[in-house]
Simulated assay, not measured.
Amino acid sequence: MSITIIKNADLYAPESLGLNHLLICHDKITSISKEVIELPNAIEHQVVDLAGAKLVPGFIDAHAHITGGGGEAGFATQVPVLPISEFTSAGVTTVVGLLGTDDTTRSMENMISRVYGLREEGMSAYCWSGGYHYPPRSLMETAKQDMVFLEPVIGIGEFAISDHRSSQPTYQEVIRLASEAHVAGLMTGKAGIVHFHLGDGERKLALLERAIKETEIPARVFNATHVNRNKALFDHACEIIKLGAYIDITAFPESFNKQGYHAYQAINLAVERNLPLNQITISSDGGGCLPQFDACGKLQHMEFGRAQILPDTLYSLVQAGHSLSLALSFITSNVADLLRLSKKGKIAKNMDADLVVLDANYQVTDVMALGKWHKRDGEMCIKGTFA
């Protein structure tokens, strides 16, 4: 069993706790103390002195194309499978994989295999069942069965609405999926939500708003992502969140999303509008294509999501005047609460030892996932099998 003592950490859990010392045993945080922690020399252990550097929870990315996304401009535009270092180098210690537009050549077999591969390499990984289309692509007979019988599957997604690439699902199909996800979540203790991809369609969130108002299904089950892709959609999302839904903001690259808001701008607006900030998460869309289409559905431009956008967004949020604690919550504790990952998203006794060290510019210098260092002093220790 590996044992590590981390000394002199400026601890954000994500709330600011000041200078602390931590004891890590195997994959868990076993002690946090204001007093220096010492062990006898007879017990083999490592001591890491952070000298006052910021120590924060490992980031949780709830929207990443771990098997590679893309393919919307031909087979040559399919993104390759992402190595573990794509995530861990950026401080992501927990990832949730999904299928997108291409749920034909990509499959749940691919997805589950990649989840297990990332776990074997040392990070925490889960996935959604399905993809853009109805009925959802599943490994078993239904997505509900995937959730009930396959441990890594925590919900359904990313299911597309208000997008020309979707199956144009009906209201009845949407609420049926939400019901199945909710019941499967009750049975298993998993997230039990539908992660909805939002396009630029004029209907925006109308299907979800109606479902929340007309059914008994809890609002948290209807989890919309990409809500900052255009300004009218974000305005509608600001109304949905007041009904109890969680919304997911995509951390688009600076060169993308001229019709909408960048993540830090969306958070600025959420604060100004006095929205419940604990119901907001931020994700990277890592490995996914970020396409722009004309009115006829023809692809005009394409970029690809990277996990590195998360620490970059953290920096932008702090530069915009938000506290580090608040900025962190959108990629740590809020995500863990929504996904019901009880050992993730916070630094506390008995939580998973998923830790990130930040430099003065809020960039990632060190990463520990489940008690093992993946990055130390800016250098990757674990790059992945084929990296």
Rank of each mutant, 00 (worst) to 15 (best):
G189F: 09
C381L: 15
L355N: 00
L328C: 03
L139C: 13
A73V: 09
E109V: 14
D10W: 11
P291M: 01
L324W: 07
S129N: 06
E109Y: 09
E72S: 14
V96Y: 01
V92L: 05
D285A: 00
T281W: 00
Y132Q: 06
Y315H: 12
E72P: 11
R119H: 11
I161S: 01
K190C: 04
H26W: 11
R165I: 03
E173A: 01
P276T: 06
K346W: 15
V79C: 06
V183E: 15
E15G: 13
R106T: 05
G157N: 00
N361G: 10
T250V: 05
I161M: 03
A184Q: 08
L118W: 09
L290V: 04
M140S: 13
P311R: 02
Q46W: 11
V183Q: 10
T250L: 04
S2D: 15
C25N: 14
I282N: 01
F256R: 09
P136F: 03
L207A: 05
K242L: 03
D27F: 10
I347R: 00
E216T: 15
Y246G: 01
F196E: 06
H226T: 08
E120N: 13
G68N: 10
S113P: 13
T188G: 08
D366G: 07
V335A: 00
K231H: 09
M108W: 02
A53V: 08
H262F: 07
G260Y: 06
A13C: 14
G71R: 07
C296I: 10
A206P: 10
G100F: 05
D49H: 03
H374R: 04
Q145Y: 10
L269N: 05
G157H: 02
S323L: 05
Y246T: 02
L358G: 01
K213N: 15
S179I: 10
S325F: 07
E214G: 04
A51R: 10
I112Y: 12
V183K: 14
A76N: 15
A270P: 04
Q168A: 13
G201M: 04
V81G: 07
Q172K: 12
Q259R: 11
A263P: 02
S333Q: 07
A387T: 15
E180R: 07
N268D: 14
K242W: 04
Y261M: 05
G297H: 10
Y132M: 06
C25P: 11
R210G: 14
S255Q: 10
I60D: 07
K344I: 05
Y12C: 01
M108I: 08
I43N: 12
G131R: 00
G201E: 03
H197A: 02
V335M: 01
L358A: 07
G71C: 11
Y246E: 02
G18D: 03
I282W: 00
I66F: 04
H374V: 02
G378A: 04
L370G: 08
S325W: 06
L139V: 12
F234C: 01
T30D: 08
L23M: 03
D200R: 15
P291D: 12
G157A: 04
C381D: 15
M140N: 14
N274A: 15
K349R: 15
T30K: 10
